[in-house]
Amino acid sequence: MKLDPAFIWTAFVQLLGALPTTLEITFVSVLCGFLIGTLVALIRIFKVPVLEQLAAAYVSFIRGTPMLTHLLLIYFSLPLIIDGLAAHYGWNFHSASIPYIGFAYISFSITASAYMAEIIRSGLLAVDRGQIEAAYAVGMTTSQALRRIVFPQALAASLPHLSNSLIGMLHGSTLAFTVSVVEINAKAQIVASTNWKFFDSYIAAALIFWGLTILIERITAWIEQRINLYNRGGVA
């Protein structure tokens, strides 16, 4: 087997066309997962009756099953549910109207939320309980204490784990090809099919993912540096 640097470069340029799709899947999933995960974490921390047990079971099931399984379950079950409801209530909306990438958004958001929930929960629990009590003492409500005192510290402590989750979702976005979404990996297969240089094409895909991962790591390191500077009383 002989590498073709010229084709690797050609494939690299062509794969950049699928970069927006990969980034959309990644950031939409992480953002939605963060919001859902925050809600799940708060339910578990404040031990909301019934919901706490459901939240714990949700996290356990999602973390205990593969990401690809979530995608396939959503892909095959959601159309049945939507079409069934549409037929029952006479809706004009049907599952055929959902773009393929929509299944990836929903599935990966669910996957990300379970992992985010544990990251956020551990970050919130790491904040000294005395700070919340001090917030109550000066007249803050629970929501104000969480928003102004607890969450900023929890997010700062959880930043490395959040960064790892973002990288994990970036790499996991390659599974979207199973529902006909053309992201970077699927595009690499399409490009390689023209002359069967799959190895060269996947090298180009690997370089793009590597570059994106390094970029995320650098941004995370920069944010951590700013946070540490602020914590030491420096000028942020």
Rank of each mutant, 00 (worst) to 15 (best):
M1S: 14
K2L: 14
K2S: 14
K2Y: 13
L3Q: 03
P5V: 04
A11S: 08
Q14D: 12
L15S: 04
L15Y: 01
L19K: 01
I25G: 02
L31A: 15
G33S: 07
L35R: 00
L35N: 00
I36T: 09
G37S: 12
G37V: 04
L39F: 10
V40K: 03
V40H: 06
A41I: 05
A41L: 07
L42C: 05
I43L: 11
I43Y: 02
P49F: 10
L51F: 11
L54S: 14
A55Q: 00
A57G: 03
Y58D: 00
V59I: 11
S60H: 05
I62G: 06
R63V: 10
G64Q: 03
P66K: 05
P66Y: 03
M67D: 11
T69P: 09
H70M: 03
L72W: 12
L73I: 11
L73F: 15
I74M: 15
F76K: 04
S77G: 11
D83T: 01
D83N: 11
A86Q: 02
A87N: 14
Y89T: 10
Y89C: 10
W91D: 07
W91A: 01
N92W: 13
F93Q: 06
H94N: 13
S95E: 13
P99Q: 09
Y100V: 12
F103M: 05
A104K: 00
I106K: 08
S107M: 05
T111W: 12
A112I: 05
S113E: 06
Y115R: 01
I119V: 10
S122Y: 07
L125W: 08
V127K: 00
G130S: 10
V138K: 06
V138I: 15
G139R: 02
S143P: 00
Q144Y: 02
Q144M: 07
A145P: 03
L146D: 04
R147S: 14
R147N: 13
R148Y: 15
F151W: 11
P152K: 07
Q153V: 01
A154R: 03
A154L: 04
L155F: 13
A156R: 10
A156K: 04
A157S: 14
A157E: 07
A157N: 11
A157L: 09
L159Y: 05
P160A: 08
P160W: 09
P160G: 04
H161P: 02
H161S: 11
S163W: 01
N164I: 00
S165N: 13
L166D: 01
I167R: 00
M169L: 12
M169K: 04
H171R: 15
H171S: 12
G172P: 02
F177Q: 14
T178Q: 11
V179W: 04
S180K: 11
V181K: 02
I184V: 10
I184D: 01
A186N: 14
A188K: 00
Q189A: 14
I190S: 12
V191N: 08
V191M: 07
T194I: 09
N195A: 03
W196C: 06
W196F: 13
W196T: 07
F198P: 06
S201R: 04
A205V: 02
L207T: 10
I208S: 05
F209D: 04
L212D: 11
L215W: 11
L215H: 13
I216L: 09
R218I: 14
R218V: 14
T220L: 12
I223A: 12
Q225K: 12
Q225G: 08
L229P: 08
L229N: 15
G234R: 13
V235T: 14
A236C: 10
